[in-house]
Write a protein that binds this DNA or RNA. Sequence first.
DNA 1: GTCTATAAAACGATAGAC
DNA 2: GTCTATCGTTTTATAGAC
Lengths: 210, 210
Amino acid sequence: MSSDNQTKKTGNIRVKSQVKILSAARTEFVLQGYRGATVQSIADRAELPKANILYYFKNKENIYHAVLENTLEMWDQGIGDIVPDEGPKIAIEKFIAAKVRMSFNHPEASKIYAMEIIQGAQHLKDYARTYQRQWVREKAKLFQHWIDNGEMVNVDPVHLIFLIWSATQHYADFDTQILTIMNQADFEEHDVEQVIAFLSDIILRGCGLI
Amino acid sequence: MSSDNQTKKTGNIRVKSQVKILSAARTEFVLQGYRGATVQSIADRAELPKANILYYFKNKENIYHAVLENTLEMWDQGIGDIVPDEGPKIAIEKFIAAKVRMSFNHPEASKIYAMEIIQGAQHLKDYARTYQRQWVREKAKLFQHWIDNGEMVNVDPVHLIFLIWSATQHYADFDTQILTIMNQADFEEHDVEQVIAFLSDIILRGCGLI
DNA sequence: GTCTATAAAACGATAGAC
DNA sequence: GTCTATCGTTTTATAGAC
């Protein structure tokens, strides 16, 4: 029993420390880039000695891989899906709303991903080549089906997906620029709803769904 | 005269070296980030000794500033403008086409800019606060005028600008991902025209202009 | 204006005491 | 599992010969 307790306690410290480290690392990687984020700066932000960071993750590259995996998993779960059941209008509306909400709630996740792609997707090539390509093809087929059925106008389904991705993620990746232009310190709930309404409106009309 | 010639020659070497260095630096900064791009890696890419790089730019930060200025100037000149003379349809069409062409022809410029914004726009805060905010307000007023005149449907002009920016720049910043998904090695002229046609079509219809 | 050699600092990673 | 001290390397930047 005492051994069980100790194991649990130890496991807890392990998990808690790892969560703290990953959170600190994510922020540092966003702010400074992979090379600019030092193990020391991650340690300082996590409020742990540098050696502990390397005790848990062995080296800096492992920290980054863990952050990347962690981030992709969270992002994939949050953005929902495009499903055939309710027709194109509801499907696109729901997808836009989910992606906009994710962008406003987890900008760092989108930024980590964006920086990875911009720099050449060295750690994500397989991800795009297998999982993502498959997803896009599946959804493109669904859009094409709706187009052939006369349920929406004839727009390129693949580029439509790119449009929704870019327009929604923009509010995460470029938040600094957008806030400066809008002359605000932070986004508020009302901004999120306004963006969802704007993008749904213009994209649905663009697809002949309004 | 011989002194004039020498001055000219010297000036030429100076300019040529600086152009070579800035081009190499831009590529390295995109691929490795600010901290990841070393003076040595820039020197190697420019095919010059490291000391020469620092002879021309004194330190690494100066190289980055020069790249940033250079890039912004080029980008600003290339994307054209939104002008009132020909009405909303032609104005938006021309702006989209210019931005898409710039994105496909100079992806590195867009990437440098994107990474700067994502990381917090430390070197661009003033640029967004003065020049860019002014530009957006001016164009938003123009869109609002068209809306009030019944020439286009009532969409938020500021978010419309964000939409056009994000959708067009996406093809520069995320080129790696897009090419992987489309299963292509490179973009071709036909891709550029297809993107222009797609984005013009869907955004103009979204604005009630088709 | 070009290039080599090197000083000075920063960084990743490890050893080993507690 | 925590932390200090330190090693080896990389990197920025400069000094100085050509």
